[in-house]
Design a protein around this nucleic acid. Structure first.
Length: 110
DNA sequence: CGAGTGACCCAGT
DNA sequence: TACTGGGCCACTC
């Protein structure tokens, strides 16, 4: 049943901790969804009970019609955005953060 | 069964 | 960094 997948996607989204964010692609990969588009569709249909505001596009910008609400909610959790864009390098949630990661290497880390 | 649509993503320019 | 084109999946008409 795809109800299972639907459920798993919701689970994954609910797993993202406050103050952190994830991309649609990440959620898709983690939940096993075939495509990020499906994640967006699921949230659109039934995301009211989930921390949907912690889900952003791959470049750190939220969907246009949600931008205002979303950025406001994130700000309340301590996630500051530069304009319409959130700095994923600092706020992206990684279930398994490796110390070796080159991603957050540069001394730019607050 | 084809065309349009959408809370998307990536590589190229 | 911003724009473009192609690919992607599910749903509707």
């Amino acid at each position: 049943m795809d109800e299972e997948l639907h459920e798993r996607v919701r689970e994954t989204v609910a797993t993202v901790p406050p103050g952190k964010v994830a991309t649609y692609g990440d959620i898709a990969a983690m939940s096993g969804a075939p495509s990020p588009r499906l994640v967006g569709r699921i949230l659109a249909e039934d995301g009211s009970d989930l921390p949907w505001h912690r889900i952003l596009r791959a470049d750190g910008t939220p969907a246009p019609h949600l931008a205002r609400e979303q950025l406001e909610r994130l700000r309340a959790e301590g996630v500051l955005a530069e304009g319409e864009r959130v700095n994923l390098r600092t706020h992206r949630w990684q279930p398994d953060p490796r110390p070796d990661a080159e991603e957050t290497r540069p001394g730019l880390f607050p």
